[in-house]
Simulated scan of single mutants.
Amino acid sequence: MEFYKFDKDSGKAISKFNSNFIMSRIIQTEKVTHIGCMHLEEKGVIGYHQAVTPQLLLIMNGEGYVRGEPEEYFIIQSGDAVFWKKDEWHETKTYKGLTAIVIESEELNPSSFMPMKK
């Protein structure tokens, strides 16, 4: 399990085309990629399971906890990204609720685009 940041502070200012915004790059793929949005209500759980393919979980709002194979939980919140390799066991849960984008693909390399969370 690896932790990354995609918050505003990890982005870069874009001014091309008269633009004025911050872009936090996340991932680039050439192979088939599945992208979904997960809505976990209060006390929601994504049960303990193995990753079928490499997956990247981007926390958009709310907060929760993730764990890998050891039963040690790590807090996650808006702007955090968690990466699991194929076959890695993991679980996500929240007490207050959270919304997350999940990206699943055989070719995910988040370290090429996002800084590691410290």
Rank of each mutant, 00 (worst) to 15 (best):
L56Y: 03
P54Q: 02
R67K: 14
K16P: 00
Q50L: 03
I14G: 03
K12Q: 13
G79N: 10
E30D: 14
E42C: 03
I76F: 12
D7Q: 11
C37Y: 10
M38F: 05
I14M: 11
Q28W: 09
P70E: 13
D7W: 08
R67Q: 10
V45W: 08
D7C: 11
Q77K: 15
C37L: 15
E63D: 15
E69N: 14
C37F: 11
C37G: 06
F74R: 13
R25V: 00
G36I: 00
P54N: 01
F21C: 07
E71T: 03
K5V: 06
I59V: 14
K5T: 09
L58Y: 02
L57R: 00
I76T: 10
F6A: 07
K8V: 06
F6Q: 10
L56I: 00
Q50Y: 04
I59C: 10
E30L: 09
V52I: 05
K8W: 05
L58D: 02
G64I: 04
L57C: 04
E63T: 05
S19H: 09
G68Y: 03
Q28N: 12
D7T: 08
V52S: 07
N61M: 09
Y65Q: 14
K43C: 03
M23N: 13
G36N: 08
K8F: 09
G44W: 06
L58W: 02
L56Q: 05
G36V: 02
I26A: 11
F74A: 12
T33D: 03
Y48W: 05
L40T: 01
Y65T: 05
Q28Y: 11
P70A: 04
C37N: 11
V32C: 10
G36M: 11
N18H: 13
G68S: 13
V32D: 15
S10F: 07
F21T: 02
V45R: 12
Q55C: 06
L57V: 09
E41W: 00
Q77S: 15
N18M: 07
S19P: 01
T53H: 11
L56V: 00
G68W: 03
D7A: 14
N61E: 13
E42G: 02
E42D: 08
G44A: 02
V66L: 12
F6H: 08
M60G: 04
E72M: 08
Q28G: 06
G36Y: 05
K16E: 12
H39K: 10
Y48I: 01
D9K: 15
T29A: 10
K31M: 07
I22L: 14
M60P: 01
D9G: 13
V32Q: 15
H49C: 02
I75Q: 15
S15K: 14
V32E: 15
T33A: 10
H39V: 03
V32K: 15
Y48C: 01
G79F: 05
N20R: 10
I35F: 09
E42T: 08
S19G: 13
P54L: 03
F17Y: 14
V32A: 15
I14N: 06
I59F: 08
H49K: 11
M38R: 07
E72W: 02
L56P: 02
R25Q: 11
Q28F: 07
D7N: 15
A13W: 06
A13S: 12
E63L: 11
R67P: 02
I46L: 12
H49G: 01
T53V: 11
Q28H: 06
G64C: 09
E71C: 04
